[in-house]
Design a protein around this nucleic acid. Sequence first.
DNA 1: CTATTTGTTTATCC
DNA 2: AGGATAAACAAATA
Length: 268
Amino acid sequence: MPELAEVEFFRKQWDPGIGHVFDRVSVHPKARIFRETPAPTFKKQLAGETLEASHTHGKKWMFQFSNGKWLAGHLGMTGKLFTASSDYKPEKHDHLVLHGKATTLVFCDPRMFGKVTLDFEESGGFPKWWVDLPPSPLDSRFTKTLVFDFMARHPKSPIKTLLLDQRVFPGIGNWMADEICWRLPIDPATRTGELDESERVAIWKLTRQLSKQAMGVIGDEWKKPPNSWLFNHRWKDGGNCPRKDCGSDLTRADLRGRTTCWCPNCQV
DNA sequence: CTATTTGTTTATCC
DNA sequence: AGGATAAACAAATA
């Protein structure tokens, strides 16, 4: 689920913990989210530290702790961050839990496609890999040239598949990629090399526009997006194209392994 | 019981 | 070498 705006929403769920010390950390030692770093390392390193600040970039989040410790992560398909009361008892899928005097911070992820990592920076600055992440669509460095060059390198990929590539479209996920194709409108299976200049410009602009809009709608309070977006119609069977004067039945099918929803009438 | 899932990484084939 | 594609990962939900 979580794409750039949802990740921003979840980041803010830990805001009540900023400025607080977390003296105890509990983990599920076998949970896949810890990947290459042993779970006890998170326990040992984070216990006693203060949460100082938080950040997001695309689908990644980063929590800055005292003594140059950085907790980064990804929510995968089903990851969630939330705050609970200080007497909260971790449940089955709560893999990483920080216990403070006033509050408990929880990372929960039933499917465990998410991950967490730990970085140490003596200097106090961001870890280098974080600084080197590709520019977000919300950043002015997300230029037309960047997008055009990437498209030129992948002329045979369907445009929707390209939009999911985090190396150039960080934060764009399945619903956003479908939304962009629908707004253009273009068939999501269109090979990128078949797009003309104006369509490629539109992809770039719509990526920026939708990223900004999603942040506004979902990033703060997770409001329901307007019915004029494809978003509200794409999940249920029998959804109809919300475009004015269309209303055709939407189609859902697999495209390179991802469920894709589009309007067969508008998107040709 | 079966089919489905808003993501990423790895393997394999070209 | 590097791009395109499918499979693997795990568990809840319908």
